[in-house]
Simulated assay, not measured.
Amino acid sequence: MAIKASRAPLSRERVLSAAVALADREGLPALTMRRLAAELSVEAMSLYHHLAAKEALLDGVVETVIAEIVPAGGAEPDWRARLKQQFLAAREVMLRHPWMPGLLGSRRTVPTTVFAYYDGIVGTLVGAGFSYRLAHRALHALGSMPLGFVQEVFSPGAAGGDFDPATAEAEMAALAEAMPNITAMVAAEIHAAGDPTLGWCDSQTEFEFTLDLMLDGFERLRAKG
């Protein structure tokens, strides 16, 4: 008699892992309960035992990806080096999942794991001598950088990894006469093909430049007391 192959039991962790893999492979729009159930070879209703609705699924996906950020530089004596390494580790995660910045921006509530992640950042700042007031202001100034990307005011293609420099250059060239300075700047700053990009002006070079500038500024404020 043939032996039926055993299948790993369905769990919240297994569902979310499959959801992240599906979004990586086919994009976030492909992530539906029905499509995910097919990936797992189960009925769609089975998923609702682990995730109450599509919004719960998306929040769980956020939690799963945030959990991939392994804080680096824990032994670094300099708080700036410690945070920089952590933020760059977060960026590596976002580059693996380029749909993630857009998903984070769409959440109606902040998943607990995101709060916990920021709690660790505040702890690093306060441990370095920042007051809670200055730490609060630093978080506002940093914006989304602790999560490894920058949220741009102007973001053709959004922060979802679909930015095409060639398209942007063509669009700006069409407006060259009306906006000569912006056009010249864009032409000079179109990112090299090897520079990882998560949005309109979110290249690795610009991310690290801005991060260093802000951390150095915070250090001057901290030193003032």
Rank of each mutant, 00 (worst) to 15 (best):
I3K: 03
P9R: 11
P9Y: 09
R12S: 08
R14I: 08
R14A: 03
V15R: 00
A18E: 15
A19E: 06
A21T: 15
A23I: 13
E26D: 15
G27P: 05
L28K: 00
P29M: 00
A30G: 12
A30Y: 11
L31R: 12
T32N: 12
R35G: 03
L36Y: 15
L36M: 15
A37R: 14
A37T: 11
E39V: 13
L40C: 01
V42L: 05
V42Q: 09
E43D: 13
M45Q: 12
M45C: 02
A53S: 15
L58P: 01
L58Y: 10
V62R: 03
E63F: 08
T64C: 05
V70C: 12
V70P: 13
A72N: 11
G73E: 14
G74H: 05
G74C: 08
A81R: 15
R82H: 14
F87N: 02
F87R: 02
A89H: 10
A90C: 08
A90R: 03
R91T: 10
R91Q: 10
R91H: 10
V93M: 13
L95Q: 08
R96V: 09
R96P: 07
P98K: 04
P98M: 08
L103Y: 07
L103D: 09
L104D: 04
L104K: 05
L104F: 05
S106D: 06
R107C: 05
R108N: 13
T109R: 12
V114S: 03
V114Y: 04
F115V: 01
A116V: 14
Y118F: 07
Y118I: 00
D119P: 00
D119H: 05
D119C: 03
G123C: 13
G123W: 13
G129C: 06
A135P: 06
H136S: 14
A138V: 01
A138T: 02
L139R: 01
H140I: 14
G143R: 10
L147Y: 09
G148I: 12
G148N: 10
V150P: 03
E152P: 03
F154V: 15
F154A: 14
G157L: 01
A158G: 02
A159G: 05
G161Q: 08
D164M: 11
D164K: 14
P165W: 02
A166H: 07
A168E: 09
E169W: 03
E171Y: 12
A173P: 03
A174P: 06
A176G: 07
A176P: 09
A178H: 06
N181W: 07
N181T: 09
I182W: 11
T183G: 06
M185H: 11
M185V: 06
V186T: 09
H191D: 05
D195V: 04
P196H: 04
T197S: 01
T197I: 01
W200V: 00
W200N: 08
D202N: 08
E206N: 04
F207D: 06
E208Q: 14
F209D: 11
T210A: 04
T210P: 00
L211A: 02
M214T: 03
M214I: 02
M214L: 09
F218V: 02
E219M: 05
L221A: 07
R222M: 08
